[in-house]
Design a binder for these strands. Structure first.
Length: 283
DNA sequence: AGTGTATCCTGCAGGC
DNA sequence: TGCCTGCAGGATACAC
């Protein structure tokens, strides 16, 4: 569910709200979302102050400072994870599937809920997190990622371009929805190999990828079912999806029915006319 | 180097 | 209505 725009939305809401707040305690209701023992987890976060909330790929990164050490609490939402900030006075209904509940010194609580529990809350030392972060590819929206770098990454891969886009070690933050949307907009078939892309193709793809990510951030993400912002609202980008989930509907560009194909065990949605399988056909 | 498969889980839609 | 099957935005480990 949560890809870069969804995680970015959550981070933008949480950063100003959590900065400077102290975590009084953590209550662990489902221990399998943690990597370590609940006792150790509670001990590390209790009393820590939140210094900053940032994003790296699809990860929410809380920088914590405890009495003498600093730690990173890294939240990966998996498919159905939600990180919700509940403000004390209003006391809305508690979400279902809460796995970890943090109480903050303001009286607010920060809840991690996750029905499928594919998500993880992991604690890292600064060195460990730096190493983890280095395993991830560049941020798609970073100006440091140039069309040249992007093209050369793709050109060296015989994998389908969608697989390349989804590989977090090559590019951090792109998931199935936005990969499909960017490929649709660029007129590139998702199963074409990275190596088959001309420089103009990859330049166009980087442009449409950035465009769709920015538009989705503006819409606060795509809610298909479970995703919620930190304040519990749905994202509205689902209305702007042109290919993803639209099997059988007309291509907005040419009217050909959108088809769904499956490879690497995942669905891809595409317009067979605008996204020809053989390179060179073009829209 | 890549792919397919299985795994972690639950919930929901669709078929019968 | 109710049971069953398939499917889902992610990440990872494994065999081939």
């Amino acid at each position: 569910m949560p890809e870069l725009p969804e995680v970015e939305t959550i981070v933008r809401q949480l950063a100003p709200a959590l900065r400077g707040q102290r975590i009084l305690k953590a209550k662990v209701l489902r221990r399998d979302v943690l990597r370590e023992s609940p006792t150790r987890f509670r001990g590390t976060v209790a009393g820590a102050e939140v210094r900053s909330v940032t994003r790296r790929g699809k990860n929410i990164v809380l920088s914590l400072s405890a009495s003498s050490t600093s730690r990173f609490l890294v939240v990966n939402l998996g498919m159905t994870g939600q990180l919700l900030l509940r403000c004390h006075p209003r006391r809305p209904a508690r979400p279902t599937h809460v796995a970890v509940a943090f109480s903050l010194d303001s009286g607010d609580s920060l809840l991690y809920a996750d029905s499928r529990r594919f998500g993880r809350l992991a604690l890292f030392s600064p060195e460990e997190w730096e190493a983890e972060s280095e395993r991830l590819g560049p941020e798609p929206l970073s100006p440091g990622l140039t069309p040249w770098t992007f093209h050369h990454g793709l050109a060296g891969s015989r994998a389908p371009v969608r697989s390349w886009l989804l590989d977090q070690t090559r590019l951090a933050g792109v998931g199935n929805i936005y990969a499909c949307e960017a490929l649709y907009r660029a007129g590139i078939h998702p199963a074409r190999t990275g190596a088959s892309l001309e420089p103009a193709d990859s330049a166009r793809l980087l442009m449409t990828l950035r465009e769709v990510l920015r538009e989705a951030i503006e819409a606060r993400g795509t809610t298909l079912r479970d995703y919620r912002t930190a304040s519990g609202e749905e994202g509205s980008f689902v209305a702007f999806l042109r290919a993803y989930g639209r099997e059988g509907e007309s291509c907005p560009r040419c009217g050909t029915p959108i088809v769904r194909i499956v490879f690497s065990n995942r669905s891809a949605f595409l317009c067979p006319r605008c996204q020809p399988e053989a390179p060179g056909g073009g829209p």
